[in-house]
């Protein structure tokens, strides 16, 4: 048996455990991974190659600090860029898959052959790649922007990041801008109309529209929800950029606001809403009382 440990290797020879110290402790530290729990206690075996326990911990700490600082620095630098690029690649991939499927369908209408089989297989492969990229985006965005993700979900959080260009830039955007990120076209159209003295409405929401808390509300309430959510997202982006720790209260306040808005409409028609069970999903409930 052989185990990878931070100071090198431990091997079992003739029923005895023998520690071997590596020449590159940074490298061995990074590879100190084993499928199962070690059947021995590390410092005890480590004493074979370290002078004392003090020496053991001193060295371990030094290497851990070095490796961890480097890792931290690397992660901070690249991760937001990585998500943005993955997202862009994902969009292209989606386009390609749709286009290829369409072409395949055209061919198959004429003739099904080995070639079309092969074609289909390749498309399936691309779909697997797509799922993998989606998963990766979700993992990374949760890590670098925990607050944004908690409020908006991985998809919207990643889109906001993409539109802003970087986590830093997103952190410095005002809430009003976050609210309409992704709806620039209709915003500028509205602004242009206003400038010409014509009546126009600025958009209520951009990317964040796809959030269920906004989408499932009746139209007249969406603006209020979007404004509230954007305000919280602006705080979340700042937290994520400067602090990086999750603040549970933020997402909680958004949820509360949603509940509040959702319930509000029930007031004028008390009798009707009483009959419905409280726990029911917002979607179904929504459509019934359509007054105003």
């Amino acid at each position: 048996m052989k185990w990878n440990v931070w100071f090198g290797e431990v091997v079992e020879e003739d029923g005895k455990l023998i520690a071997k110290k590596s020449n590159d402790l940074v490298e061995s530290f990074k590879n100190a991974s084993n499928p199962e729990a070690l059947p021995f206690n590390l410092p005890e075996v480590g004493l074979q190659v370290f002078e004392s326990l003090e020496d053991y911990y001193k060295t371990l700490r030094k290497i851990a600090l070095k490796v961890t600082s480097e890792k931290v620095e690397r992660e901070l630098k690249r991760e937001d860029r990585y998500v943005i690029l993955l997202l862009k690649a994902l969009d292209k991939l989606n386009e390609s898959i749709n286009m290829l499927e369409e072409k395949l369908r055209d061919i198959e209408e004429v003739k099904i052959s080995d070639t079309t089989e092969d074609f289909r297989e390749r498309i399936e492969e691309l779909k697997r790649l797509r799922r993998r990229i989606e998963k990766e985006i979700e993992d990374v965005i949760t890590k670098i922007a925990p607050n944004l993700t908690e409020i908006a979900g991985a998809v919207i959080a990643a889109r906001l990041l993409e539109k802003a260009g970087s986590l830093e830039r997103l952190a410095f955007l005002p809430a009003s801008k976050i609210q309409i990120l992704g709806a620039e076209k209709s915003l500028y159209k509205a602004l242009a109309r206003m400038r010409r003295g014509k009546p126009a409405k600025t958009p209520k929401h951009g990317i964040i529209f796809i959030h269920p808390f906004i989408r499932t509300l009746p139209k007249r309430k969406r603006g209020r929800m979007a404004r509230f959510m954007a305000a919280k997202l602006a705080i979340a982006a700042k937290l994520d950029y400067f602090k990086g720790e999750l603040d549970e209260n933020l997402a909680e306040s958004v949820r509360k606001k949603y509940e509040e808005l959702r319930r509000e409409k029930d007031k004028p028609k008390k009798e009707e809403s009483k009959q419905e069970p409280k726990e029911e999903k917002p979607k179904k409930k929504k459509k019934k009382p359509k007054h105003r």
Binding site: V72, E75, L76, K143, I144, E245
Partner: peptide, 11 residues
């Protein structure tokens, strides 16, 4: 800890 941001302070 798995998130790099707060770990800057931790270090």
């Amino acid at each position: 800890e798995y998130s790099a941001k707060p770990f800057v302070k931790f270090l």
